[in-house]
């Protein structure tokens, strides 16, 4: 197990390094300096600004400074809002995005697994049919379309729930719903198909023959194996949800990472773009790493602590 974790850890570092380098190269391949639009006619000011942001150094030195800023987790000041640092923006925006993302994944997991399990238990029954209809629709409707529809119908026409911001649990319902529907649908479908497969296995027949209660059979015996495919896609799904928060935050005017990220892109605020991209990707890659390790613990067939050929 330790060997596997170490291997995965180094791969994670490699991925983060690649995205950091890619971000750096892309940002510096844009011609001109970020101060060009400012029309600071005074060359001394320009030079001082460039010196302050270390833009006067040669490229490889800038790259080293940049790597250092990642390791020390200090992304420096923003260019467009000089009195704010990238770290402050991240500290303000990230917790909100994180909260939205975590609530969403929790809702999606719980409802998706429940839906998929019941659909499998009532195979070809009315619940199965309804659940799968929901799943196909849920996969087809893009989250930003769903969000807009929800605001129009539930918040504006019916006035049941507030249409925007993130200030109370009541405000959280619509954004979460909009973001969680797609993942719920995917999880429900996956759970159903793997559950159907698992339920035909001999050990389930054995459990039935032993006279275990149906609930116990499903919860203790079937679910653990049926959930493996769900755990496999968890990593990429998390990435999808956390980037999906960008557009949801925009629609619901939630002041999370997405707001600052899109803003910084529109303003060409390079330190913010670079800082938030690297931070966000590092976070996502780390989540992927965690999911892989959880997978290793859960799947009895993967013997992580043994070398190949040992078994």
């Amino acid at each position: 197990m330790a060997k596997y974790i170490i291997k995965r850890f180094f791969m994670m570092i490699a991925t983060i390094l690649i995205i950091a380098t890619l971000t750096f190269a892309l940002m510096h391949s844009i011609p001109g300096s970020p101060f060009d639009e400012e029309r600071t006619s005074n060359p001394t000011i320009q030079a001082n600004l460039e010196k302050f942001y270390k833009l006067d150094e040669p490229m490889h030195i800038q790259y080293l400074y940049y790597l250092k800023s990642i390791v020390t987790f200090d992304f420096g000041p923003s260019i467009k809002k000089p009195n704010e640092s990238v770290n402050e923006l991240l500290a303000r925006g990230f917790p909100i995005s994180f909260e939205l993302g975590m609530v969403t994944i929790l809702v999606a997991l719980l409802s998706g697994v429940t839906l998929g399990t019941f659909a499998a238990l009532r195979h070809n029954g009315i619940i199965d049919y309804l659940a799968m209809t929901f799943a196909v629709v849920g996969i087809s409707v893009p989250n930003f379309v769903l969000a807009t529809l929800l605001i129009q119908q539930i918040a504006v026409n019916l006035e049941w729930l507030p249409p925007a911001t993130w200030s109370s649990p009541l405000h959280m319902i619509l954004p979460t719903l909009a973001l969680a529907t797609g993942p719920t649908a995917i999880i429900a479908r996956l759970t159903r198909s793997s559950m159907l497969e698992v339920l035909t296995q001999d050990y389930i027949k054995m459990a039935r023959a032993k006279g275990l209660s149906p609930v116990r059979i499903v919860v203790r015996h079937a679910l653990r194996n049926a959930l493996m495919p769900v755990v496999t896609i968890m990593g990429t799904m998390l990435a999808g949800i956390l980037t999906g928060t960008f557009v949801i935050e925009r629609i619901f005017a939630i002041p999370g990472m997405g707001k600052y990220f899109v803003e910084s892109i529109n303003n060409r605020d390079y330190p913010v773009i670079m800082g938030s991209t690297v931070f966000y990707s590092a976070f996502l890659v780390f989540m992927l790493f965690l999911v892989d390790i959880v997978y290793g613990f859960l799947d009895p067939r993967i013997k992580l602590h043994r070398k190949e050929g040992d078994a």
Binding site: T15, I18, I19, A239, T243, T277, Y280, L284, V285, L288
Partner: peptide, 9 residues
């Protein structure tokens, strides 16, 4: 390594 990159970002 590439698979770990967040695509949309």
């Amino acid at each position: 390594v590439l698979y770990g990159l967040p695509h949309l970002l």
